[in-house]
Design a protein around this nucleic acid. Structure first.
Lengths: 148, 148
DNA sequence: GCTTGACCTAAAGTTGACTTGAAGTGGCAG
DNA sequence: CTGCCACTTCAAGTCAACTTTAGGTCAAGC
């Protein structure tokens, strides 16, 4: 089986080697050997990292992701909880859709103050409904658009 | 206009007072006065907090959110960037949808090892496509489902 | 055979987003 | 008028997720 050494994996995944080492340290990925000192990974690790990326996007902590996508394919997590997570994702997707609409609206709407615009107020009405719940934990990456 | 003191706002928003004070400190919300020592907020702040919650879900940093939903309705951020952000959100929503599908699938699929299941592999194929890009920054809250 | 450059380890540092602790204040119920 | 208790400030602490630093290693190309 083909092996990628850490530099190549870094290229393919877009993650710096330090992150890959970190992920390995916390048991999120595993190397299959060394070439000299260099860690080597197998090709499924690329997929695994993509998966981890998605999990992060969804706001899962790395620990949670570790549990969700266990070493082998066998899920460590009971069906019921997976469904809960999926439902939570649906919730989140709805929220994000509203936020997206709000953003688009703000970009277009000519009203002086957005709170004066009935359309915007309606968007925010819904927003308010949806996000008054769920306990906070930690934060994901920003959508790479950041101007800083 | 009706005023909520911090305890009430905390109740309504689901955020602890310490967080509200913190948000005020960094200029994300504003109090309209005091009742004795107690901070008082106006009712739109509830909406504002909902909005902030959505922004966080989307992976925006508090600083970014501050810029996006400026004090008054006037957007600090140029139209073009708002559209970029909205597009990024669309991207993210697509990713999350795939993750949700994958989760649901994992919860249902009877295959021993998920990588053996063609349906799952297809889902992951797409996943791999979508999340190999975009530079990471920071992490959001987890969907409140966390078992810890 | 020597240099080079990308890797290695271990430990410490950074950042964002809060939370906690200690010491104090003030409105209101009894 | 006296407590109580939820608030106050300010500083320090915590936590996740990395990144950086310092000092070392080694396969490959010249």
């Amino acid at each position: 089986m083909k092996r990628l050494d850490i530099g190549v994996l870094s290229q393919q995944s877009g993650l710096p080697p330090s992150t890959l080492r970190y992920y390995e340290e916390i048991g999120l990925i595993r190397s299959v050997g060394r070439h000299g000192l260099r860690r080597q990974y197998d090709t499924p690790t690329v997929t695994r990292l993509a998966l981890i990326g998605l999990g992060k996007m969804a706001g899962f902590a790395l620990e949670d992701i570790k549990a969700l996508f266990a070493e082998d394919g066998v899920p460590q997590v009971p069906r019921a909880e997976l469904h809960l997570r999926a439902d939570a994702l649906d919730e989140q997707i709805r929220g994000l859709s509203r936020l997206r609409d709000a953003l688009r609206h703000v970009a277009e709407c000519p009203a002086e103050n957005h709170m004066d615009c009935p359309k915007f107020r309606r968007l925010m009405q819904f927003a308010a409904r949806s996000s008054g719940d769920s306990k906070a934990k930690r934060a994901v990456k920003s959508p790479s658009v950041s101007t800083r």
